[in-house]
């Protein structure tokens, strides 16, 4: 670049301007968001979900590395955490949001979450495209595991106008985990 002074200035200016713009958004915003304290709900989600992100220990996202629970002397992966992982794997969040909006969803989908409700959760899969009902409080609206099992196997048997595809290809254990995850979303 010998002799082209204007390009040296240009390159430095580019780096300064771009760094400043990233500092304002990612830097300041990130520091602020990282300081938000966890709520009770966030702590309970941390206990059940563990890490829902993809991991080498669980390459096909079957929920093999979710937190363990013990019931009647048997030890197994927490079905709520496994259900969330299946929710991510099957891309449910491409249609169902997990975020009642602050502006207008209070009456229909319930109270929007608090900032601290997400602490420790990753991925949050709050979704962006609501082709299907919000699920943040689905466990309060539909508290029956049996209903969810039937709904996932054959959506149109419980809601004849549904455009959700059938998830009959999931095995019994996975369907049960998914239903338990739905019910846990109070």
């Amino acid at each position: 670049m010998g002799g082209y002074k204007e390009y040296k200035i240009g390159v430095i200016m580019f780096l300064v301007v771009f760094a400043a713009s990233m500092f304002m958004t990612i830097g300041l915003g990130g520091v602020y968001l990282a300081k938000i304290p966890a709520t009770q709900l966030a702590l309970s989600k941390q206990v059940h979900y563990g890490s829902s992100a993809w991991s080498i220990k669980d390459p096909l996202m079957k929920g093999l590395n979710q937190p363990m629970v013990t019931k009647r002397g048997k030890s197994f992966n927490d079905p709520v955490g496994v259900g969330k992982k299946i929710f991510i794997r099957e891309g449910c969040w491409h249609c169902h949001t997990l975020l009642p909006e602050q502006s207008m969803d209070w009456e229909y989908f319930g109270a929007p979450p608090l900032a601290g409700d997400f602490v420790g959760e990753s991925p949050t899969v709050i979704g962006s495209d609501r082709k299907a009902p919000d699920l943040m409080h689905i466990g309060s609206r539909m508290p029956s595991v049996a209903w969810h099992l039937q709904h996932h196997k054959d959506p149109r048997s419980v809601q004849n106008k549904s455009i959700m595809q059938s998830f009959d290809f999931l095995d019994k254990k996975e369907l049960k985990a998914l239903a338990k995850y739905m019910v846990s979303l109070k």
């Binding site: 958004t25 990612i26 915003g29 990130g30 968001l33 990282a34 938000i36 966030a42 900032a115 997400f118 602490v119 420790g120 959760e121 990753s122 991925p123 949050t124 709050i126 962006s128």
Partner: peptide, 13 residues
């Protein structure tokens, strides 16, 4: 280990 709203924010950024 970036979680919570920070994760959502980075994803949408």
């Amino acid at each position: 280990p970036v979680t919570g709203l920070n994760e959502a924010y980075m994803v949408w950024w």
